[in-house]
Amino acid sequence: MHTVRTFLPAILLLLSLGQQPVAGEGMTEEGQDWRGVKGEAALFQIETLSADRVVLIFFDFYCPTCQKSARGKNRLADQMREDLPAVPIIGVGYGDTAFETDLFRKKFKLGFPCLSDRDKTFSEGFRVVRTPTFIVLDRETPDSGFGEVYRHEGYLGREHIRAIMEHLERPK
């Protein structure tokens, strides 16, 4: 398992920096409570998540494959909401402004919070070089750092959703 312990501070930093665009806007349209996260920015910090697995979805507003994968992203989110309600999905607008990130989320009615990563610093921390990229992070114990256990780049098909779910459902 590739350890990304060093990424944890980056996640914390991004999520705290990203509070503004996430506030209310970043949550599901209908819900104030998602994956145990209240729809208030102050509460949307990774340490408040009880989850030890996270799915990161890197997309670009301008990327045709990301646009085509939007249905798959929602399918994955729906499946996770049903089977793994404690595991959060976080969308990251790779190179997108907050406006573009939020517009993408609204256009495709993405049911998970999305953060802008205009200068790609956060994405580069995960060695993301193209979009869409889907990463599953896991930590072996509640106190350990996150490690990457699965990555898929490109169009999100049913087989990739299946693979993500398998990694998320794998017993500890």
Binding site: D60, F61, Y62, C63, Q67, E100, L103, F104, K107
Partner: peptide, 13 residues
């Protein structure tokens, strides 16, 4: 290549 597909997406807007 990563500019115009975005304009396509917001044609309605």
């Amino acid at each position: 290549s990563a500019q115009w597909p975005g304009y396509s997406l917001v044609k309605d807007e």
